[in-house]
Write a protein that binds this DNA or RNA. Structure first.
Lengths: 229, 229
DNA sequence: TCAGTACTTTAAAATCTACTGAAGTACTGA
DNA sequence: TCAGTACTTCAGTAGATTTTAAAGTACTGA
């Protein structure tokens, strides 16, 4: 009887550990983070995460076996997506626990931003309020397909790669707020650096779309635009 | 510049993965679950989780290095406790994700309960309401020190081991609801089996103290009673 | 039908992890 | 000071994980 109990407990904790194992690797966490922004093909994920293709495929398999993501084949392409919104919420709670418990996270971020001529000094709540009220021009600097999968209301899509050649579209007489995937994504940091160098008044919003959504604020989506180069 | 970004991302995801690695092992998850019930010594944890002492010590070290738990030495004993309430919340969100995504969890539980003459058919919300209103006798069948660390308001502490010899304390004319550590803890299952065999009207509440607390309901604590055999 | 693309699988090497038993450390009470 | 207890660390082994290159599969368009 006692041993049946033990077998039950062991079996249950083994199941829980399947999820733990899935998120025990930095590369898999990065893939999960990317998938929180929207569905992507294997190649796109590999390139974005700086991984080999075979390796990416195997990591995605591991995530699939923990049932955190799902794959769908359409023609040549296999598109991976989160299996459930709850997966993104769980990822966010891991991130928030890491921020709370691991001083290294803040330390690494602080050092990184310092090296990029100090981008941190902005009142976050004030900035959020401006973005919420549409009092500023909001720039989504992620790749177009991520913008399409969901973006802040009224945000203009200007992927970082296109920013330099599309500067003419931006107003000089209005504050610009750039955002990307979240607090550890560097796209908005680079965008703000470029904009400031060109005389714009630009700030970085740390929140990504999922953080915005988690605050209970609305998100807009376009018709899906996938596999765009 | 791109390689500095890559180094930053890698460093951040490595930090996140420290937490993932900590929860990637079934034994460590069981220890974390136990620690959600309150502080325990190494020996108590080892015994409860059915692990060797050296092994337990090493798992606790891993949890400590991920800063999920803290250790405090007092005399001969080292008492481990969760580093933060957020750790228990995170564990609960892992559990809830596993329940939602892994059909095996429900399957294993169903088979286990079936083998124990089917304890599942109880309307959970109705039962919760009765417990909340004090309309039933509520039994906490966990070890005394866990009861002391926090229990449902008005609950009577009768550890499972003492249940048979303390049956006289229980009312025959009132429903009894037993609870323990949560949905995957077997103490309450056994308690209900014993009580029903003796003619009591008894039910099992799946929620543990942490689940109760997560519903926003109040929890009572006694003065700490630690190291009780 | 054939070349090319996107992806998966296999195989092998390097590294990491989990567990055990034995030795070591730190503290208590006699 | 010494035996005993609670815990940690060490060493060794078995097994799992991660990564890469190479081979294999499935689909498309010519």
């Amino acid at each position: 009887m006692a041993s049946r109990n033990r077998r039950f407990k062991t079996a249950i904790y083994e199941q829980f550990a399947r999820i733990g194992k899935a998120i025990s690797n930095p590369s898999r966490l990065e893939l999960l983070d990317l998938l929180c922004q929207g569905p992507r093909t294997v190649e796109a994920l590999a390139k974005e995460a700086g991984l080999g293709l075979a390796n990416t495929s195997q990591h995605l398999k591991a995530l699939r076996e923990a049932r955190l993501v799902e794959a769908e084949k359409a023609g040549l392409y296999v598109t991976y997506r989160l299996a459930d919104e709850q997966v993104c919420e769980f990822y966010r709670s891991l991130r928030s626990l890491a921020e709370a418990r691991l001083a290294e996270v803040g330390e690494i971020t602080r050092r990184f931003l310092e090296a990029r001529q100090g981008l941190q000094p902005v009142d976050r709540e004030q900035l959020l309020a401006k973005v919420r009220d549409g009092a500023v021009t909001v720039l989504d600097v992620r790749p177009l397909e991520e913008y399409a999968a969901g973006h802040l209301p009224g945000a203009l899509s200007v992927p970082l790669k296109e920013l330099e050649r599309r500067l003419a579209e931006l107003p000089h007489d209005r504050e610009i707020v750039a955002y990307c995937r979240g607090p550890y994504c560097v796209l908005a940091v680079e965008a703000v650096e470029i904009l400031r160098a060109r005389g714009f008044t630009a700030f970085r919003l740390e929140d990504g779309v999922t953080d915005w959504h988690a605050r209970g604020l609305p998100v807009e989506a376009s018709t899906a635009v996938l596999h765009t180069a």
